[in-house]
């Protein structure tokens, strides 16, 4: 089932991030898996926790507050809002400081963030920026980001 693959990815995320979140994150994992589509709060928490940008015991609300304090938040989104592949890609690019292509430098946003991650092989399969994002796919994308980050290829 998909749960097994997702748990593996999440395990990698927290191990690679050098945090000790595994035990206390079971509830969070269950909550993410319960989401058919990735929510803004879950995405913000996963990205910032894996990047070590927020403390281990923070939650989605604190993650969003952190994003907004850094000017990285998504406009018109609340914690439970679902986000698209493009919006998630834009968050990934900003949180991990991934340099984009020509158009991304001129017009940074979901469209060109998606294309950048697809070009790097981080997004596999359909890479339309407005497509809905499942929680499972979001975590797989994050797993690839962490693998490349560890190898210094971001």
């Amino acid at each position: 089932m998909k749960s097994r693959g997702v748990l593996t990815v999440l395990g990698c995320i927290f191990l690679l991030a050098g945090t000790n979140l595994w035990a206390q994150s079971n509830e969070f994992i269950d909550a993410v898996l319960a989401e058919e589509q990735m929510s803004y709060g879950s995405a913000a928490y996963l990205l910032l926790a894996s990047a070590g940008r927020i403390s281990a015991d923070a939650g989605p609300r604190e993650a969003i507050e952190y994003l907004e304090s850094q000017g990285l938040g998504l406009a018109d989104k609340i914690q439970d809002s679902t986000i698209s592949l493009g919006e998630y890609s834009f968050l990934v690019m900003q949180v991990y400081g991934i340099p984009g292509g020509l158009m991304y430098r001129v017009l940074p946003g979901p469209r060109y963030a998606t294309r950048e991650l697809a070009h790097r092989g981080i997004i596999q399969g359909r890479s339309y920026n407005t497509i809905r994002l499942s929680s499972e796919r979001g975590m797989r994308i994050l797993g690839r980001v962490l693998q490349l980050d560890e190898r210094g290829l971001l």
């Binding site: 469209r111 998606t114 294309r115 890479s127 339309y128 920026n129 407005t130 497509i131 809905r132």
Partner: peptide, 9 residues
């Protein structure tokens, strides 16, 4: 249509 779920370029 692609404004819903899709892309263009």
């Amino acid at each position: 249509l692609s404004a819903a779920e899709g892309d263009w370029g």
